[in-house]
Amino acid sequence: MSAVDTGRDRSLEALVERIVDGHPRSIARAITEIEDQTARGESILQQLPEPDQPAAVVGITGPPGVGKSTLINALITELRARELRVGVLSVDPSSPVSGGAVLGDRIRMARHASDPGVFIRSLASRGQIGGLCRTIDRVIRLVHAAGFDLLIVETVGTGQVDVAITEVANTNVALFAPGLGDEIQALKAGILEVADILVVNRADSPHTRGTLLELESMLALRGTEQRRVPVLATIATTGEGVAELADRILDLASSD
């Protein structure tokens, strides 16, 4: 082994140490390496210690404009009050033509930017369909190793495609806006089948009750052998219903 290689290894070890200590810049750099699928990124992953327990990963999915980021923002506040360290990975689609992306979600979580107990990272899907990026499982492993108790993965999508998220998340939250009518029918084969919690956000709308009832009746049609899927109402902007959502998420995370 050459001297240079040894030097590199030492820098790698130091980097991994800092990641495990939860040092934000080191985590951020390592994510870039993983996203870019570099050899260094692979080495970092290989050197990460085996976790004591599996990561608690919460997938939050919903159509654009339903208030996902705002709800996650409120959820972070709630989870921080319970002294949990929270990692958020917010995935936005890359342009299929240019490969570029505009990532605008984290701005709604801006007030957590300077909290060391919160790590937020925007990821572009980089050509992967299903609302996720192909390196997501590795990024999750990294952020988990950095000591974040709960990982939230935010993805855009409606209907069938977002089923992809169930491969990486062990708790799946699907978000709805009040007042969707026919769209519910289209959901039957999609997210409704895999979601663990359904949430109607913006519950201050007069259409909320109707949507809650529709979702409940859809779930009833799925039969009794399924486990009970709660249907919750939240108002992300005021934080209403968020504590209950956090309760449900943590219940499921601990039962897994």
């Binding site: 240019s98 570029g100 990532l103 605008g104 984290r106 701005i107 801006a110």
Partner: peptide
């Protein structure tokens, strides 16, 4: 920048 293939974090 997006159309040129870059990833852009946009804030208000």
């Amino acid at each position: 920048l997006r159309d040129a293939g870059m990833e852009v974090i946009y804030t208000g």
